[in-house]
Structure formats: C-alpha cells, structure tokens
Design a protein around this nucleic acid. Structure first.
Lengths: 345, 345
DNA sequence: CAGCGAGATCAAAACGATTCAAGTGGGTTA
DNA sequence: TAACCCACTTGAATCGTTTTGATCTCGCTG
C-alpha cells in the first residue's frame, strides 16, 4: 500500500502513461500541452492514466528540449534584511503572474558567493536574472552575457547601457536624511556607512555632503564611519565606537535600518537618550523601524514595487523584439520622520 | 566584440568544446568530471577550450541523465518572518556544505501555494524537501511520496513515522510564556493566536492552559483570540480589538513576535503603558524583538540550528542505506525575559 | 616476434520530454 | 471510382550530458 516506489526506480515517465492509456508518447504530450488537438475521448483516457499513475513531468527533460527554463534568478545582498525580502516578494509576485518561478539566492555581499550563484544561474539556464550587484559584479556577470541571459540591476543604476535597472536615487536619499538632521540644528553628524565598495553607500554619502552645501555648512560637519557589514551586529559595534568618541556626534545617519537598530540598542543600553542626546536616522524604512525602541526616522524605499518593476522590465526584455532598449527606472526616496530625530525645543 | 551570442542560438554545448579541442564529447565530459582518466596534455587542451568558449554545463541535461537534481526544496510559511529566514539560512549553509543548492519557496500559509510549490519540487526532481507544513499538508505531500522524494518536517512534529522532523516543544513554549505572566500576577491573559489550523498555535495554547493548571488557576484566566495571519498587520488589528475590550486583559501572550510588535505599536500609540498596563510576551525571539519600543520578552527558538539539523537529517536519509529510521529531533524553547513583561512592584 | 596489459580515447546508447512530418481511416466531392 | 480532405494519431528526431564497453596504440615480456 505504500506510495513510495522502489528506491532504484526513476519514477513514472511519459512512457508509462502512454502504455497505460494505450496511446503514443506524442499523444500524452499533446494531451498535456495541446489538448485541443485530441479527441475528447482520448484526452480523457490520457488524463485518467496521468491521474492514476501520479505522473509529474520532468522539468529537466522539458528544459533540455526547450533550451531554457521557466525560472528567473534573483540574487540579493542579504536575505536577512527585510528590505531585500520585500524586493524579493515583489519580484516573486510579478514573476508568478507571468508564469515564471524565482530562484532566490543570497550572496551575503561576498564576491565568491556571487560568482557561485551567477554560475548556478547559467547552469540552470534561467530565463533572466535580477541582480543586486556588489561593486565588482561586472566581471561576474559576463557568465550571463555569454549565455545570452538577460539581466536587470536591482537597487543599482546600470552603467552605460549595459542593462535595465531599477534603483532609488540614493544621493537624494542621503540629502534628505542629512538635510533633516542639519535642519534640526545638528552640526556634528556621523554617517555610519556600510562598506564603501557598495555604490549605495557612496551615493548616500554624496547626498549627505550635498545637504551640507545646501545648508551652507562645512563638509566637516559629517564624519564618515565605515562599517564592514550592514547588519544589526555591525550597528551595535558602531554604536559602542560612537560612545567612545569625544566629542560625541549629536546626529547619526545610518546607511540602513539594521545598523540604526543596532546603534539604537547600544545607545539605549548605555543610557544615552535618543533623540535628545543623539538623533538617529535610518534608511529603507523596514517594518521594524516604526516598532523600534524609539520609532525610527528613515528614508523609505518602495521595496516591493522595485522588485515588481524590475521583473516587468526583465520580462519585457525576454519577450522583446530584436530592438530592446535598456531602461533605467529610478524611484524617489521619501523621508519618514519619526521620534528618533525630533529634538525637543 | 559583443559577448552576447546570437539570440536564436542555444549557447555553447559540449559538442562545441569537443570540436574546439579536437576530442570527442566523452573526453570533454571526462575532463570535467573524471580528470584522472585523461592524460595531462588532453586535459589541459580541453580546459583551454572550455575557458575560451566560456562553456557552462547544462544542468538540465545532467539532471535528465542522472535522474535527479542537486537541489533541495525548502518550503516555508512566511518569508517575511525573520524566524523562517533564520531557518532558511541555517538550512542553506548546511546544504552548501554538502554541495547541494536550496530552492526557497514561500507558501504564505495558503494551501494552493503549498500544492503549487510541492508540485514544482516534484517537477524539478529535487533530491529532498524541507517543509513547514500547514494543517492539511499530508495530502499535498503525496506528490513527493509518489516520486520517492524524501522530506523532513521543519517546525512540526511528524505524525507516526511518516518522516523525520525537527521541531521545538511548543507546549513547553506556551507554558513558559503564560507561566511567566501568571507569576507576574496576571489573571486576565489574552492569547493572540494565529490560525488554529497551525499545530504550533494549538500547541502553544495547550501549554498556556497547562501553565494555568500548574499555577492552580482556572482556565478562564486565558482568553484565546484567533487572528487570521501571523504578521505585524494582524498584530495591529488584534491590538485595537484588545483596546476595545472591557475589562482589558493585563497580560498578552502572542503566538509570534510579529504579532507582538504589531500589538505593541497599537498600544504605545494609544498611550497604553507596556508593561505596566499590559504585559506582553512574544514568540521566536527574532532579532527585532530586543530592539522593540519596549524590549520584548519572547520565547526563543534556535532557528538557524533547526534549519541546519533538518538539512542534516534529510541528507542522511538521502544517502541512507535501505534501512533508514525516521528521527524526530525536538529542541527546547527558552524564555528570554525583557522589559515588556516585567511589572514594576 | 607474438601476445598481453595498461593507458588513453571514443562511439553509441540512454535519460524524458516536445515537435514535425507523415500516416491512418472515414467521409465527401468531382 | 478516383481523388481529396479532414480530424486525429504517431514514429522518429532532437535537445546536452554521462556512462559503458569497445578500440586503438604502445611498450614490455616471454
């Protein structure tokens, strides 16, 4: 009575179904893919056999024949960051609407992992790829280019007309954040950046300095502190380093909300008042920012929408006629002010 | 000079490499998979051709030949819940160590999605599957059974000896949480449960009632409030419903931290003091629990370790000799007390 | 010098599906 | 009656890889 077939067996194949329904394999294939070609009777007979045997198509066989899969690859920098999960979610929804699956991978910002996964995408012959690249991705991407696999940059502007891209104007984001802090009267601001190898981190700094210019304040007002990672732990570290500094900055702009939450924890634990002693601004506006110890001011990026838009661009490129023109969609960031940055007057 | 091949082409195949290196396809295959069979000279020549042409193996062709893939399927209930992401992360690490990839899917607790993805796993002929099942998964899993695809339950005890499983003792978890609230003197406790179709939610209630028994308190002390989802939004909803109730419960136990964070937000916004007016206990101890507006007391589950352990069980079953005996690993939950539940005396 | 074994290479079959051209059979038309 | 058409079904080729057993070439031994 066991459902479990002999462990050596390869499972039910189209041949078994053909035999059971007493038709050719071609007919079984047609029953599944072009039912309109068959007489109602035959179709029913085949489907009954499929049902009875529990037949499931072998995707690898179809793929081999078709020369490509029905999957998109999605490579993100950090799955534990809700911002990326949000993008992934948006991408998945959009892909499903087009009958495509998504293969989600996490490069952990390591070049080796990135190369590994892009190689995997190529081996799988994914239909297209969505990539949040690190600095040096251009070379790793050649494996996709060589196989004619189109890709779209997510959360990064494509350089030249290499590919489509979906991004957020990070310069503006940085400007909004630091502009807000300057407006609150802060003149000693720390920018807790992630690794400067990430364009996002660089752009946000540029924006920070622009904000200084606009406010007629010297660039010295902003000190850049580079962290190795963009996660909560790194934030806690950076927080303790801040505490040791003298004079302490009065305003802190973090490259993302995870860092900001880590800093916040350290500060609160050390009895430093936020926002009164130190004002804090994060980036991404993840769900948890609003629920933080002190609700976090943050620069919002439309994560799900970015993922969905990128998928649409990719699908359009895949379906595209010969003449596809790369498109760079740029969303505007939005400052969401909460308590962490509002100094009492 | 473009890297991009003709869009009609199928890309470089093993035949092209064979031609370029002036050997047979069998030799190319051997160069890649059994280099020790070849003369050093031939091997080098082949590898040079591989390099030059940018050849990448077609995974679907290998799979077709091999009859199985080098992938595990991982189906979680909610990718936006950091607890599941933690499990996924642990599973991925462990799988990579065994040279296996992980295909991550999110059923969103919907049966239809679950069936869709399990079907996908079968079509892909994954080597094995890790599943966080909903109530009714037993039937959907038959598609795996029929194809001899082994699976392991994640965050759920297997019934009978159907499969291996990795879980946390949710009854104890519920008991710890509510026991703690009772100890703090609360006698009107709300249990904000997710859908009762989830065994986890049911078990935690059982634990809650056990705690009452142990404290010699009537079961009436605990009111169960069922929510539809286990996310922050549902928590916010449940929070407003709590506010409308009279008398208000003084202690609230939430089926997970997302719910708890949602409730917390609503309460804080409404000026209800946590923990003084209402004490709050969550579940999972996600990273964000410690960083919440009021640091959240929570029941910790070792997410990454669970994922890793499940993968190991699965790998063992896959490699297993004929006589595999299913194993049920159960981790112990741990109460992490923070401010949200400590009533001032 | 015949015979043998080892080492290196290869031809061909197989995996499971899709597709296309060709075949079948029954009915209609010239 | 022959020619044709239509609806349905099928044989065979094909995709890119791995593997098995065969072949081929040496150099060595007896």
């Amino acid at each position: 009575m066991s459902d479990r077939p002999d462990s050596r067996s390869r499972g039910v194949s189209i041949k078994d179904v053909a035999r059971a329904a007493d038709v050719s394999v071609a007919t079984v294939s047609n029953a599944l893919n072009h039912p309109e070609l068959l007489s109602a009777d035959t179709h029913a007979r085949v489907m009954r056999a499929v049902e009875k045997l529990g037949y499931v198509r072998s995707e690898s066989a179809r793929q081999l024949r078709a020369g490509q899969s029905r999957m998109l690859g999605l490579l993100v920098l950090d799955m534990r960051n809700p911002f990326f999960v949000g993008m992934a979610h948006g991408a998945e929804q959009a892909a499903r609407a087009d009958g495509l699956g998504v293969m989600l991978c996490d490069s952990s910002q390591e070049l080796a992992a990135e190369e590994f996964y892009l190689g995997l995408f190529a081996e799988q012959r994914v239909r297209g790829a969505l990539v949040t690249p690190t600095d040096s991705s251009t070379t790793s991407l050649s494996v996709l280019r060589r196989h004619g696999i189109p890709y779209v940059f997510l959360d990064r502007v494509a350089s030249g007309d290499e590919a489509c891209s979906v991004s957020v104007d990070d310069v503006t984001g940085g400007r909004l954040a630091v502009g807000h802090l300057l407006e609150q009267g802060h003149r000693d601001i720390a920018y807790l950046s992630g690794p400067m190898s990430l364009p996002q981190c660089r752009d946000r700094r540029t924006g920070a300095l622009q904000a200084c210019d606009e406010a007629g304040v010297d660039h010295d007002a902003v000190t850049v502190v580079e962290t190795e990672c963009l996660d909560v732990d790194a934030g806690r570290d950076a927080g303790s380093r801040l505490l040791g500094r003298s004079p302490r900055p009065t305003g802190v702009f973090c490259a993302n909300d995870l860092i900001a939450l880590g800093v916040l924890q350290t500060l609160v634990a050390a009895g430093v008042a936020v926002p009164d002693d130190i004002a804090l601004v994060g980036y991404d506006d993840i769900d948890f920012a609003a629920a933080a110890a002190v609700p976090l001011t943050s620069v919002r990026q439309p994560a799900a929408q970015m993922g969905a838009t990128a998928t649409e661009l990719l699908v359009r490129e895949i379906a595209g006629d010969e003449q596809h023109v790369h498109e760079n969609v740029e969303f505007a960031p939005e400052l969401v002010v909460r308590r962490s940055s509002i100094t009492r007057h």
